[in-house]
């Protein structure tokens, strides 16, 4: 098993190289000259200045040279400087990534727990009113556009009902947290800041409900389907012939057998969440990667775009690696 993981790890640099290459070609080959993102219109009039700036950012080199420069710098840990924030991309990313991961993991937990529960219930009572309701709701859930739901929930939850605070990651009124992991919920707990924890929790609820909702239907339906598949198996009939009760059959036998596909489903929707977070962060003013990606794209800030791509790519690869490791934990047949 260790060998399999080591083998997978050696593949990661190759995948990342491909990812960066494609993104580089897409952003530089198709988008317009990044110089327009760096300089104002007035500055662009001054040709000498433009040439100077081009040289400073290495934009005067042929594209292929820029590409290899970029790769070489990336390998050394230098992702370049943002045209927009004038900060090193790396420090920008380090500041933004925890916010997004916190949001995604929180959403995935909600959707995972809820989706597996609903999927189990629907499969256990297949064909009943409960099953039909759950299926209908998941279908509607997957059909509702995320941005629409986000705006409606924001309006209802925070304006009309005033149950939740407005956009943002933590209330401006409380003293800021000290630097830590960047995961506010964790930092607040570690630093014993109950007020900050409450605030962060209240702030994360709405955006994560929106994100969770967007994947809940998929999880529910796939878990239900794999549970029903498992229920058809001979070993379920054997369990019934043993005299095992129907709940024990659902949980100990069918759900256990569906565990592999559940892991696959969760790893798969993680990718959706990475994309979905972009919209949700923009609407909820969540200072994460998605927000950063949108602003960078607007500003033609290509080193930042490449940086976001790199982080998302690496995250996605790591999630799949974790899923692979979980497979071997869940299934003794893969362990060999």
């Amino acid at each position: 098993m260790l060998r399999t993981i080591a083998y997978r790890l050696t593949g990661i640099p190759l995948i990342i190289l491909g990812l960066l290459t494609i993104t580089f070609i897409l952003t530089r080959g198709i988008a317009s000259d990044p110089i327009y993102g760096i300089l104002s219109i007035r500055e662009l009039m001054n040709e000498d200045y433009v040439a100077l700036v081009r040289e400073k950012y290495g934009l005067d080199e042929p594209l292929i040279v820029q590409y290899f420069n970029y790769l070489w710098n990336t390998v050394q840990g230098d992702l370049g400087t943002s045209f927009r924030t004038r900060q090193p991309i790396l420090s920008d990313l380090l500041a933004k990534t925890p916010a997004t991961l916190e949001l995604i993991i929180f959403s995935l937990t909600i959707a995972g727990v809820l989706g597996v529960t609903l999927g189990c219930l629907a499969a256990r009572f297949e064909g009943s009113v409960l099953d039909v309701t759950i299926r209908a709701v998941s279908l509607v859930g997957s059909s509702v556009p995320v941005f629409w739901l986000a705006i409606i929930l924001l309006y209802l939850g925070s304006v009309v009902l005033d149950w939740f605070p407005g956009p943002g990651r933590i209330s401006q009124r409380i003293a800021p947290l000290e630097d830590g992991t960047g995961f506010f919920l964790i930092d607040a707990l570690v630093q014993g800041r109950w007020d900050a924890f409450q605030s962060a929790l209240r702030q994360i609820m709405l955006p994560s409900i929106v994100l969770a909702w967007s994947i809940l239907g998929t999880i529910t339906r796939l878990v239900r389907a794999s549970m029903l598949d498992a229920m058809e198996s001979d070993f379920i009939t054997l369990a019934r012939a043993k005299g095992v009760g129907s709940w024990a059959i659902t949980l100990r036998h069918a759900l256990r057998a569906s565990l592999l596909s559940t892991i696959t489903i969760l790893a798969h929707v993680f990718g959706y969440l990475l994309t979905g977070a972009v919209l949700v962060e923009a609407i909820f003013a969540w200072p994460g990667l998605g927000d950063y990606a949108i602003e960078s794209a607007r500003a033609l800030d290509y080193p930042a775009i490449l940086g976001v791509t790199l982080v998302s790519g690496v995250t996605f690869i790591l999630v799949n690696l974790i899923a692979d490791i979980l497979y071997t934990v869940a299934d003794p047949r893969i362990r060999q």
């Binding site: 198996s233 001979d234 070993f235 009939t237 054997l238 369990a239 057998a257 003794p332 047949r333």
Partner: peptide, 9 residues
């Protein structure tokens, strides 16, 4: 079929 009647996990 003893191949499928036992729970694989």
């Amino acid at each position: 079929d003893p191949m499928t009647t036992l729970h694989p996990l």
